[in-house]
């Protein structure tokens, strides 16, 4: 954890507990997330990893009957006190299933800037190009920006979603199993992209795929039954896990 002390933190989470109704989904989570790194969150399904990243941009609050305790600080700001719309412009999110809007590629990318009051065509043109380039999609779609995004392949749709998130220039990108609905080739493209993006963004990615976590992340958190069992540099964790349960999971004994 030495190198993280040099870097400033994007998230500092203390004693986070979360319930869906009477079911406790997250238990006493306390971790610090450094900036400009790729953090992978792994664990068997139902371990709370998706729930966890949804607490980071408060998307989890959309679920009725959810209750949280503890604190999450985003760059020293308590996110409970932040305006949720502002938090989400700084913390973008990409979902499991590609979910572009049934609009043109251009309108998909311009969606964020537009709802935040940026209307002039010139700026929007620039943003669309820059975001699509950022998502490594510009060359593929530059001649058909006004076509419906639903006409693209699954992998391209997912990159539209990444470009859409980039358009408002966030600091953090949350990714909830972004490749689980994609074929291996598209998956490889997204992984390359994540590698590029880590230069400028902090990325927190949930994945059920341990090889993927090993390939792309700097640090990995292992979740089990709503608890963080281990959080360490990815290499160290894979080669020398401290906890028996991490070892069992990584070596495929369960999950």
């Amino acid at each position: 954890m030495n190198n993280s002390e040099n870097k400033s933190l994007v998230y500092s989470i203390k004693d986070l507990n979360l319930w869906y109704g009477d079911t406790k989904a997250l238990k006493n989570i306390s971790i610090d997330i450094p900036e400009k790194e790729v953090i992978a969150i792994i664990g068997p399904s139902g371990c709370g990893k998706s729930t966890f990243i949804k607490t980071l941009n408060r998307m989890v609050e959309l679920v009725p009957s959810v209750k949280t305790e503890g604190s999450i600080h985003y760059k020293k700001l308590d996110i409970k006190k932040a305006k949720v719309e502002s938090l989400r412009t700084e913390v973008g999110m990409v979902f499991q299933k590609p979910n572009p809007f049934p609009k043109s590629i251009y309108d998909n990318i311009a969606y964020g800037p537009r709802i935040h009051g940026i209307k002039d065509k010139k700026t929007l043109d620039e943003v669309v190009e820059r975001s699509l380039r950022g998502a490594a999609l510009w060359e593929e779609v530059k001649d058909r920006l006004d076509e419906n995004a639903f006409g693209l392949s699954g992998g391209q749709q997912q990159r539209v979603c990444i470009a859409r998130a980039l358009a408002v220039e966030p600091d953090v990108i949350l990714m909830d199993e972004p490749t689980s609905a994609l074929d291996p080739l598209s998956t490889a493209k997204i992984e390359d992209l994540i590698h590029e993006l880590r230069k400028n963004y902090s990325i927190i990615i949930v994945t059920h795929n341990m090889q993927q976590a090993a390939r792309i992340s700097d640090k990995t958190a292992f979740f089990l039954n709503g608890e963080v069992i281990e959080f360490d540099a990815t290499e160290r964790m894979y080669s020398n896990p401290k906890d028996k349960r991490t070892d069992d999971y990584i070596s495929g004994k369960f999950g």
Binding site: T89, H116, G117, I118, V168
Partner: peptide, 8 residues
């Protein structure tokens, strides 16, 4: 863009 959004 970020700054403009903040201003808006």
């Amino acid at each position: 863009i970020r700054e403009r959004i903040k201003k808006n």
